[in-house]
Amino acid sequence: MGKVYLVSMNRWIVFLGLTFCFMGCSTAHWSDRHPLFPVGSALAETTMPDLGERWILVRGAWFAEQLKLSPAQVYDTLGEDVREIFAESVIQNLPTVRAIASTTIDSFAPTEAQKLDDHIFIKGRFPAQGQTLLTNGLAVSQLLLIHELTIGPDLSRENIYDYDKANQDTEGNHHKVKKLTAIATWTLWDNHKGHFLVSGISEVVVPYQGETGPELRKIIHDLIPALTAKIHCGIIGACP
């Protein structure tokens, strides 16, 4: 009798497990791969415009308080640090990638939307159709474009980029901060043929333990590995 009970319990566990797996597996796609993206190739001869002003701080007043900065100064002071940490991380994690001025993107086509999933869109500027970006007179084969870097407490990419779950803005919820988040939208661009290779939204989350400065450094620093992992899983074709 006990055995029968166990067997039926097992079935239930398997059934529930499968159900949750389906629920979990059918979540949104946070990246989109072009069908012509060469499978198995690594980042080769890639250029990356600097971050520049394409970063957003959510709840600046809170950061100002934590970092002992004046609210008026927080964007300027923190901006320098964010750009510096980001550039350092690129040099460390992507040594072959060559950085160019952030103003390069001013020559691109106006801002466009890029669809990743039925209700997930990113916005960014890409070279115009038929336009090849030349650096020192030469066309590199790939561009790594960071469209937007968002930093803030208790953020999640669903609330910002998933149009089904938007309007759940965490700013203004003055509860105790539990985590710090950095979210980047990015595209790996084929500079010769003029189309995207992979586009995605990556996020890095750390639990907040009161050490605002080091934790901020960590999430920005870890974004590049998170993003490269996504590009590589795009190459393999199986993103988690």
Partner: peptide
């Protein structure tokens, strides 16, 4: 539109979908 024609010439392929050949310029 000339640039678009040039771009189309480089991007036609049996693996693409129609959205990958869309004209982006307004």
């Amino acid at each position: 539109s000339g640039a678009y024609l040039h771009w189309l010439g480089m991007n036609v392929d049996a693996r693409v979908e129609s959205r990958h050949l869309a004209a982006r310029s307004s």
